[in-house]
Simulated scan of single mutants.
Amino acid sequence: MPVQKLSDTLVATLACPPGRAHLEYCDTLMRGLYVDVLANGRMAFRIRYRQGGRKRVHTLGDARLLTVAEARDRARTALRKVIAGGDPKAADQPIDGPTIEHFYTQHYLPYVKSYKRSWGTDETIIRNHLLPALGERAMGSLIPPDIARVVESMRSRNYASGTINRVLVLLRYGYTLALRWRTDGVEGNPAKELKNLKENNKIERYLSPQQTTRLLTAVHASQNSMLAPIIAMLLLTGARKREALDARWQDVDWRQKLWRIPKTKSGKARHVPLSSGALDLLRKLRETSDPGTETIFVNPRTGQPFVSIFYSWDTARKQAGVPALRIHDLRHSFASFLVNAGRSLYEVQELLGHADIRTTSRYAHLSRERLREAVEVVAGHCPVVP
């Protein structure tokens, strides 16, 4: 942690050393002030202080936009707030209301954490995209062109349309909450003026029978002894990865041949029919599992559900010759197996637990291929050309 007198000239030359995630350069003139230089090239002025017996950090702003003198002024104001027993994040509340950073970190995140299972995704988007671009702006000062510039900047850096759309959705929802909570300075929702970018969500990746065989061979050879049954369960049920990793024995109804998934993406429990293959798989696991074990797929190292199986999965898919295959593609493959076997989209919808048939319609082209094969059968029996 280098300590030296910060200057605009010095800050312009700072860089993060190779192999480091970030490096802090502390100022000798303002105690607690430092520049945090990240490996991705971003720099931020921050202050470190103690409050309530705990070490805390407050971001003052982008070091590429603020001068050192401005950073010291902000640090001085914030530290005075700390001495007075206040919150430095509210030290400079402008007439246009709280800053984007203050609103999303102090109000939005605590709220969504109370009910949203995927709040971690929101936190990542806020930290990586929203705060670097707009964090210092007041909520009430933002206008649609400001957000449009963020979108264009992300597009120029080749971010996926889906990532950009998540930023837009998060901004829209944040401003909706700000209006509902009558946040100072917020009189409208500037994000509503911008449309989401078009995304190419067409699913093209399905396992062929040959690829399925190679994949199953690879997972059975994995050093992770639980990888093979996990992948087999996903292929046999079309479940999502987290649903399988969190599966419990108490949710298996052997008599009715059903697996109850208490927590799904929609927030509602659903029941998955278990085929004879899935039941055989579960019986073998039951025979070898400890009697007191609640989790079906136990991590042998921890005795708990797996947090991640990426590394063993990544090794297996490469060995199987399908390095681009995602675990979620096993769910798509399950659907394709059903459609190619002549099952209706309605049946696929029910088995996958889709609330809207439009989600299942992505597999409609597979059904059309089967219809073309069907009409060829008729053509073979009705030659019209002598």
Rank of each mutant, 00 (worst) to 15 (best):
P94E: 04
R358H: 11
E70Q: 14
M154G: 05
P229R: 00
N299W: 00
I164H: 11
A178T: 09
S156M: 03
N165R: 07
P383N: 06
K198V: 12
G120Q: 09
L234Y: 06
D314R: 10
P18F: 03
S7V: 13
A324G: 10
Q93Y: 03
M30V: 11
L207F: 08
A239M: 14
D8Q: 06
V307K: 06
N196V: 05
R42S: 11
R172A: 02
T124K: 09
T105S: 06
R137Q: 11
R242N: 01
A39F: 06
P88D: 06
R166D: 09
R270G: 05
T28Y: 01
T212D: 14
R74T: 03
D73R: 15
Y108M: 05
G162E: 08
W313M: 03
A379W: 11
W254A: 06
R255A: 13
K195W: 01
A63Q: 04
I47L: 02
P383T: 06
E24Y: 07
A244I: 05
Y108G: 07
Y115M: 07
H102S: 03
D290K: 15
I296D: 06
Y311C: 09
H271Y: 14
Y115V: 12
L215V: 13
V169K: 08
E243A: 03
A269K: 08
L258D: 02
L134M: 15
V219P: 00
S266V: 05
R172Q: 07
K81W: 09
I327T: 04
R326E: 10
L168W: 13
S344E: 01
L29C: 08
L366A: 08
V375L: 12
H332W: 11
G61Y: 02
R72Q: 05
A133W: 07
L234E: 11
L66E: 02
A379D: 14
L325T: 09
E152H: 10
T213D: 15
E243G: 08
L23E: 15
T212R: 11
K192T: 15
Q93G: 04
L279T: 09
Y159K: 10
A191P: 14
S114F: 08
H354Y: 10
R127W: 01
R358S: 13
D36A: 05
R50L: 07
R166H: 14
D246A: 12
A247L: 00
K318R: 10
N200Y: 10
A44F: 12
T67R: 07
G85D: 11
G85S: 12
A355Y: 03
V68D: 06
G238N: 07
Q211I: 09
L352D: 01
E243M: 06
P18D: 14
A69N: 07
K268W: 00
R155Q: 13
N201C: 04
